[in-house]
Design a protein around this nucleic acid. Structure first.
Lengths: 168, 168
DNA sequence: CACTATACGGAACACTGATTCCGCTTGTCA
DNA sequence: TGACAAGCGGAATCAGTGTTCCGTATAGTG
């Protein structure tokens, strides 16, 4: 059920309609509504799961040996790879800051890492706690556009952005 | 008429409805349709005008004395300032690449400037012709989100991005 | 097997927003 | 002044999509 919805949002973006979601899940729309009261609730559940995955990626990156900057690069690339093929989640990343537990956790973890990388001298001294979320917001837009056919390249975007964030 | 529509899109974004547009123009919806066959046509006209403004900014920046890199910085900041307060145009910038004369012209001008800045050695050697449009795509998303209340900062975004684009 | 409870599918409904259309106003001309 | 044309406003219409509801199928039970 969740899997079908995920597939629908992933391929069609957030405007995927309930009929399409239900079809992919192999059920009728009524059945979808028996599990989730609204489309928004369904999307929230999916987003929360995705952000949970991002938190895990972030924790894994933080735990790895090496500098905080290495961890930042690692989490950014892994998060992007984890999200890029999912149009729906890219649109969520590009949207207004999500206010769920996992999203808050994520912001906290990235802010901490940024702080550490600054004190280690690898990140520009004026980096702020929201720079990673901001970068991922832009990433979401560019990845979604790319998936929709624009000839943009999110890997290139991240390369530029990370270079901009690194200490000179 | 165009002015009313511009105001509506600027404040409410692209989802501003025809009733709101008509109201701001001080006319009925029928009158709007007497000038533009569809909402999309109206938006296209507005976009074309905006891109015309961006082309002008770009030409002015290119013509100024100084390095090509200076011109790039100038055009990026001026374009952003020119667009940031208009939610509708930010969404257009963030959307799929616009296919109008002015937009194509703009891509051409920025690509030329990038090429020049590279040969002058101020821009990273692997910069591509679409790097400026890509940057402005991200800008559009972040500026629109900021205007909608998110605590993001498009000036900061551009600062990072430009630093990423500059030669080390 | 007959009966009931549960879950399901998808047609019907409700709402939103773009587009159309018609009666009315306003200005022009004889 | 009265007939007519042009332009206008905004109610009516149409279409797309989220949500509800009900007849039907299924599984469990005595």
């Amino acid at each position: 059920m969740l899997e079908g919805a995920r597939a629908a949002f992933a391929e069609e973006g957030l405007e995927a309609d309930m009929a399409s979601i239900a079809a992919r899940a192999g059920v009728g729309v009524g059945t979808v509504y028996r599990h989730f009261p609204t489309k928004a609730a369904l999307l929230t559940a999916l987003s929360e799961a995705h952000f949970g995955g991002l938190v895990e990626i972030c924790e894994r990156a933080s735990a790895q040996p090496g500098s905080a900057w290495d961890a930042v690069e690692r989490l950014v690339w892994d998060s992007a790879e984890f999200s890029a093929s999912d149009q729906g989640m890219c649109e969520v990343l590009a949207g207004a800051p999500t206010e769920t537990d996992a999203a808050r956790r994520l912001r906290e973890l990235t802010a901490r890492l940024v702080e550490k990388a600054k004190t280690e001298g690898d990140m520009r001294h004026d980096a702020g706690p929201d720079d990673i979320p901001m970068m991922m917001c832009g990433f979401g837009r560019i990845a979604a556009a790319q998936q929709a056919g624009a000839h943009l390249d999110w890997r290139r975007y991240l390369r530029l952005m990370l270079d901009g964030l690194r200490a000179r």
